[in-house]
């Protein structure tokens, strides 16, 4: 790599093709750019392949799914598998359960964490530092590992096979308190002081000033928590055995065998279950990207 510095003749100048509004970061001649694009496209193709195959299988007539060698298209397209899967009804119930659980987890997590973070940032009281230290220590606790004692505790509390039993163990997020505290501290104190002089109470200041100012980060963490709760498998799997209370990932795991060799139906169910979050991603791409960047700092 110690070649003499080459004086680039076609230096990276913003060319007129409009595709590079900012000056290119790396000096790469045209050929290099093409290679990079081809490599990126190849990886993208490989990454999309499993989903495309699931999609292709799901619209085949059941009898043709096991053609060998595999064919991408069958003799005809059919929505039969989707109709079958949806008419069985369970999928809809699990979908609703997942929604209830994910929404509840998100709302409770974000609000309780935000309240705590606000107190740690702005509202001094005796013992606050000790509580904050306790919170920080909670960040490193690998909660999933203690699933056996947690289940035992849920039995004692009578929460096995209940919504609350699924939801409440998922809402303690010390890392989120830590992250939100940083953002609340950055809110200009003058705004809060002014509101307080005008007679606003602490609750009002929190809801009317602090929360709106931190909307971007709150949106990011909310969506991130929602995704985590929607996709969580391990805890709901442990704590539910009643099919009417199962979330989508748990319910699907239980019927995976029931579908047997009906691959079109199996893949139709997979496609339907994957769809909600993919749509959410398309709508909230920016918030999700920000959420990952933030969550990376706090662990997940």
């Amino acid at each position: 790599m110690m070649s003499a510095p080459t004086v680039p003749l076609d230096t990276p100048r913003p060319t007129g093709d409009g595709r590079l509004p900012s000056p290119p970061r790396l000096f790469t001649p045209r050929l290099g750019r093409v290679c990079i694009w081809v490599a990126a496209a190849l990886i993208a193709f490989v990454w999309l392949l499993p989903m495309l195959w699931a999609l292709a299988t799901s619209v085949k007539p059941e009898a043709e799914t096991t053609a060998y060698p595999p064919e991408w298209t069958a003799s005809r397209f059919t929505g039969e598998a989707y109709r079958q899967v949806l008419s069985q009804g369970d999928l809809v119930v699990w979908f609703l359960n997942s929604t209830i659980v994910a929404v509840a987890v998100t709302v409770i997590t974000v609000i309780t964490s935000a309240w705590a973070a606000y107190a740690f940032a702005r509202l001094p009281f005796r013992g606050r530092n000790a509580l904050y230290a306790l919170t920080i220590a909670g960040i490193i606790v690998p909660a999933n590992v203690l699933v056996v004692p947690l289940f035992q505790q849920m039995r004692i509390m009578g929460m096995v096979d209940t919504y609350w039993g699924i939801i409440l163990p998922q809402v303690v997020a010390p890392a989120m308190v830590f992250i939100l505290k940083k953002f609340f501290e950055a809110v200009p104190r003058e705004l809060e002081d002014a509101a307080q002089m005008d007679g606003a109470g602490r609750g009002r200041i929190f809801w009317m000033i602090v929360m709106p100012l931190c909307r971007p980060i709150l949106a990011a963490v909310s969506i991130f928590v929602f995704i985590g709760a929607w996709n969580n498998f391990f805890w709901p799997f442990i704590v539910t055995s009643d099919p009417d209370l199962m979330t989508l990932p748990v319910g699907l795991a239980n019927v995976q065998n029931a579908f047997g060799v009906r691959y079109a139906q199996l893949m139709a169910a997979a496609v339907l279950a994957a769809l909600p979050l993919v749509l959410i991603f398309l709508f909230f791409q920016r918030q999700i990207v920000r959420g990952v960047a933030t969550a990376g700092l706090g662990g997940n």
Binding site: I43, F45, M51, I227, N231, P249, A253, L277, F281
Partner: peptide, 12 residues
């Protein structure tokens, strides 16, 4: 394409 699988539930 790179990120989407992360959004898919593990069972799927």
């Amino acid at each position: 394409a790179y990120f989407m699988p992360f959004l898919v539930p593990v069972t799927v």
